[in-house]
């Protein structure tokens, strides 16, 4: 008698205040994507266009938190994902967007929407559909518990693959010198 097929794990991914570079790097696992979809099925992700995250085994989050919507998405992932992974520099320390942190937000909005040349009638966008920017850009671990971190800008496809395969095999992920990079 054949053993029943092992149910696939569910996996979700999202980009917050990031550049999608980590997702591009994830796609760099190339033909290993075929191996991966034998083991997992995707829930919310830019790959599926599903808008909300349901119960999942693994969630990958790229990017830090620069506005209120980012925080909502992160909390939805935390509430639904058994294992939540911060992927890339921005998710881990705020990265490039966090370089605005030592300027007051009001000064930045003034500079972008009022002070620039050619913005005589410029105004700061205030449509209720726009998520409000946060005072500072925060990495994920400052708001929710993060289970694993994959550093790099972006982490290489090999690095992401190593962490995923370690987790899928029930091992603690271990990168070693060749794959652990902050740049």
């Amino acid at each position: 008698m054949n053993a029943p097929a092992k149910p696939k794990l569910r996996m979700a991914t999202a980009t917050l205040a990031g550049c999608f570079g980590c997702h591009m790097s994830f796609l760099d696992i190339d033909e290993r994507l075929f191996d991966l979809i034998e083991l997992v099925e995707f829930d919310r992700s830019p790959l599926t266009d599903i808008k909300h995250c349901g119960p999942c085994d693994i969630g990958l989050i790229e990017g830090g938190l620069c506005n209120a919507e980012n925080v909502h998405v992160l909390r939805e992932f935390r509430a639904n994902c058994k294992i939540l992974i911060a992927v890339g520099a921005c998710a881990i320390n705020g990265g490039l967007p966090a370089q605005r942190n030592h300027f007051p937000l009001s000064l930045i909005l003034e500079e972008v929407y009022h002070a620039q040349h050619g913005l005589v009638d410029g105004f700061i966008p205030n449509d209720p559909e726009l998520p409000l920017p946060l005072d500072k850009v925060h990495p994920l671990h400052e708001v929710v518990k993060i289970d694993y971190f994959i550093p790099g800008c972006p982490p290489s496809g090999d690095t992401i693959w190593k962490v995923l395969t370690d987790l899928l095999a029930g091992r603690e992920p271990e990168l070693g010198h060749a794959l652990l990079h902050y740049d």
Binding site: I92, L96, H181, Y182, D183
Partner: peptide, 29 residues
């Protein structure tokens, strides 16, 4: 911010953090 630092790869703080397998800054910035 290692990705935009000229010293990245030659930095002893970064390299020591690699050696000690520092995966995140853990504390609030």
């Amino acid at each position: 911010f290692c990705p935009s630092c000229e010293k990245s790869g030659n930095c002893e703080l970064q390299a020591t953090a690699y050696a000690l397998e520092m995966m995140s800054p853990h504390f609030d910035h």
